[in-house]
Design a binder for these strands. Sequence first.
DNA 1: CCTAATTATGTAACTAGTTACTTATTAAGG
DNA 2: CCTTAATAAGTAACTAGTTACATAATTAGG
Lengths: 148, 148
Amino acid sequence: MMPFGLKIAIINRAFRKRLDEKAAAMGLTSGQLRVLGSISRLEAAGVDEIHQNDLEQLEHVTHPAMTKMLQRLESKGFVRCEPSAQDRRYKKISCTESSAGIYRLILEQDEEVLSELCCNFTEEQKAEFSRMADMILKNIDSESSADV
Amino acid sequence: MMPFGLKIAIINRAFRKRLDEKAAAMGLTSGQLRVLGSISRLEAAGVDEIHQNDLEQLEHVTHPAMTKMLQRLESKGFVRCEPSAQDRRYKKISCTESSAGIYRLILEQDEEVLSELCCNFTEEQKAEFSRMADMILKNIDSESSADV
DNA sequence: CCTAATTATGTAACTAGTTACTTATTAAGG
DNA sequence: CCTTAATAAGTAACTAGTTACATAATTAGG
């Protein structure tokens, strides 16, 4: 039997690959699209100032990973980074005009790829699968916030 | 709602992180452990000569990724690579004594991590989740083998 | 107040993945 | 046979992640 670690790695790679193909049309990678989506989501939620830290916690990535990701996105002109006025340690992050309406597109393409991978699922199975993924995420979140 | 691409990326990172902690005790990373497991699995299945190509197809990774992975594993002394006698293009790969009994350990630790992540699942839910992952893998496999 | 701890971010060096290109060996056709 | 195709593996340059360490700004204690 194939270990679960290998299964999830393969599924993750397959998802990324399919999304990369769609993202390339916008001059982006799947990872950049994902981060851009997270920024848009926080903006839509009404967060006044988005900081690098917020994105790291949301995506469960380390500081250096997000530092470099934002540097790439900034150099491509998709996000803007400016020092926060209140606390100069913080970096205030925002989407530029280039990435303004991109969020809906991201969600659409994400849903398309999921449907491709789950093409032999019933609607009920797809919903159940999504619920189970959320249960795992809840465990991961509670554990990482518990290590105070 | 969080896009599925982000969900699976987070779950994959969480799985890798937990497995990395266990693998570190053996001087390995989770990725190296995973590949070592795949080699052991092919050996146990009675494949006479394991080639780099076989591992790439099994793990759905590109040639250069596996080339470097095997170079790292070889330099650490966990695998042996020798040119095949039949066809000198092929590289014959085998586990060394250092990694002989490691397969059972890999499966145990994989199961442990899965149980941690699915701690709020019933046994039935865990089995159902595994079945669904297999269904997705089947789609991925059939698609990649169809592009002849 | 001023030092010390905390916190946000940055940098270096590494593992792990990608695409694109090169090399070497075998297989196939004229 | 001998050239050409196909195939296995390697290399270069990049994205994306990790740990460990450095830097700068704010917060807290004495």
